[in-house]
Design a protein around this nucleic acid. Structure first.
Lengths: 247, 247
DNA sequence: AGAAACGTTGACGCAACGGCAGGGTCAAGT
DNA sequence: ACTTGACCCTGCCGTTGCGTCAACGTTTCT
């Protein structure tokens, strides 16, 4: 048989067969005078074995191992391991499909591909055109992705609907073009720090090199006066944590 | 933030981030004086979006498409398509696990990774040390892989337990070193052809270039006298088919 | 001052082939 | 005799999503 014939017989492509030769999975058969590979029935039998094993999901090197030792011992091991692997994959896929179903269930936007808990929290917050509120929502989405956020949603729920919080956002918005010595900075920082519940404060990872860099980047993200407010808020919160730690 | 910081924050590797830069999925941020990349919170938000989408199973170019158009329209399309794809994969995996379970259920050997129908047929055949019978079993396994065999198993079942068939194998074995003019060749061919049931004859794919090459390889697989028997059997069967075709 | 732990670009490796380039070979038709 | 079409050959690049060096500069801690 030529390569195309054995390929059609067994149901694989000639290209795959040459690949098996290349990696030493299937020995190269003899050649005819014209250089064509000349396959025997035995080659077809081996190739069929390879095909059945790969169709089960075995990798080519696993197939090689199985074909190598004549006994069926190793085969059982490999198959059991393979089944465990397939079971894992199946669970992964199911999990993804569950999340997909939840996403497609409600309204979908690019930003709302988040955990259901955060999706609900963002849903309860009233629509606003405050740039600072929008920024905060982005930060929440960010925290959600890192897995940090999931514990603070409950504590944040009452804040989302609180008109007082809305007012804080508006006061922060108003500082967009303010100078660094604006008199509204200090009291706003105090009010904002006071609005942060203890539960949220406790859940925020306080230290570490990562948070250092993140904190700096966070400040860079705001206008100068607004950044000053954020800085003071963070300082006040840090003081609260320290005070409780020693008190 | 430096690359390691944003990576730890979002939960991906720095290498992955550089990869995203390389393929244009995530824009390169500005650099510090020392050449380090300087990331902002906005970068982290985008990166987190990328991570969530890839975790759902989207490819990187699909992620790029989704991030490209601001509306969530395309996202829904992609997600629906993705879900269909995942469903397909899930079914594939389930099918493979079903076959695996069937295999691991009974005794497993490297050759017995075959369809359950053939496995049963091979099981009913009595153990024999006839080389020709072993060869025939290999050929059956080969046919099973190609999908041709599944229709003839029922017709072959009675033959598997027939002592007369066993005698035929032994007569063929006896010709291993016989000359081409051995007087046992002609009557053996006649008896073997007579033993092939009509149902099997009808199910064998008669023509085509593939079977031509296979037939030649099949003959090469036997000793000269045995090949002569096989040749005569095939000729007799072909005559039977032709006779019925015209009669 | 030296080491550890970051950062930079660049390139190869992976699984299982598909596809193409740039040839040679063979049987059949014109 | 010539051409067409269907094969065959070797060899190399592309795929996906990064991991893993290599070889080097920077920052930081001790």
């Amino acid at each position: 048989m030529r390569i195309g014939e054995i390929a059609a017989l067994v149901g694989v492509t000639s290209r795959a067969i040459r690949h098996y030769h290349h990696i030493g999975l299937l020995p190269e058969p003899g050649r005819r005078a014209n250089g064509y590979r000349a396959y025997s029935v035995r080659d077809a039998v081996v190739l069929a074995r390879i095909r059945r094993l790969t169709e089960l999901g075995l990798g080519l090197d696993e197939v090689r191992d199985v074909l190598a030792d004549d006994a069926g011992r190793e085969l059982v091991e490999v198959l059991v391991e393979l089944d465990a692997d397939l079971a894992r994959q199946e669970n992964e896929i199911r999990e993804r499909r569950r999340r997909l179903a939840r996403l497609l269930d409600g309204p979908v936007s690019a930003e709302e591909v988040v955990s259901p808990a955060l999706a609900e929290l963002l849903g309860t917050a009233p629509a606003t055109d405050s740039p600072m509120a929008a920024k905060d929502r982005e930060h929440l989405v960010l925290l959600d992705t890192t897995g940090v956020g999931s514990e603070v949603y409950a504590a944040l729920r009452p804040l989302a609907e609180d008109p007082a919080v809305h007012a804080l956002y508006e006061r922060l918005d108003a500082l967009a073009a303010a100078p660094l010595d604006d008199p509204r900075i200090v009291p706003l920082a105090a009010d904002m720090a006071a609005a942060v519940p203890d539960e949220v404060l406790a859940a925020i990872p306080s230290g570490g090199p990562v948070m250092t860099g993140f904190g700096q980047a966070l400040l860079d993200d705001y206008a100068p006066a607004q950044a000053e407010v954020v800085r003071r808020v963070m300082a006040a919160l840090a003081a609260r944590v320290a005070g409780r730690g020693t008190g």
